[in-house]
């Protein structure tokens, strides 16, 4: 059960794995080519956690801080959802880029080298894959925001029934 929750975020992120390479995905899972085991940081979880927290905060902001009669329609919700998604895009982009800049991503995942150590193929393209992962993080953030909206809209005063009339 514990393992289920430990891998839950990663499995969810893998729904949108096609946006970026398998090698970046393995890195985010914490795969360490040096040991052949998943003993590096499970970045899906840490990035997922940032995204979850940000989505929750923006949801709470919308339903409990702003909660304004003139900003409580379906389009208001959509604006907040999009804002959340855009933030998540940059969070995803930045996290991968900073890992790359810090040299945390193992070389064997970054490049395919020949016997002399020359790069034959770049396995993870920076920065394009940072954006790609950002896009998948964007979609995840939208899902988180939607789920949090379903779960926590009940106690809002005015925005309670957005985005839907009643749900």
């Amino acid at each position: 059960m514990g393992e289920f929750f430990e891998l839950l975020l990663g499995n969810m992120y893998c729904w949108f794995k096609s946006f970026y390479s398998d090698f970046l995905s393995q890195y985010l899972w914490g795969y360490n080519p040096a040991s052949g085991a998943y003993d590096l940081e499970l970045r899906y979880n840490s990035i997922g956690l940032y995204t979850l927290v940000i989505s929750f905060v923006i949801m709470a902001l919308y339903y409990y801080v702003i909660d304004h009669p003139r900003f409580c329609k379906w389009w208001s919700w959509l604006i907040m959802a999009l804002l959340n998604s855009v933030i998540a895009l940059f969070v995803g982009y930045y996290c991968v880029l900073s890992d790359y800049n810090a040299g945390i991503i193992p070389d064997e995942l970054m490049y395919l080298r020949d016997e002399n150590g020359e790069v034959v193929q770049t396995l993870i393209s920076i920065p394009s894959e940072c954006w790609s992962f950002g896009i998948s993080n964007m979609i995840m953030a939208f899902i988180f925001f939607l789920v949090f909206s379903f779960l926590f809209h009940w106690w809002s005063r005015v925005a309670k029934y957005s985005p839907f009339i009643k749900f």
Binding site: D67, H68, P69, R70, R157, V158, K160
Partner: peptide, 9 residues
């Protein structure tokens, strides 16, 4: 009236 609406809700 926004405040009024808020109180109503």
């Amino acid at each position: 009236y926004d405040l009024f609406d808020y109180y109503l809700c």
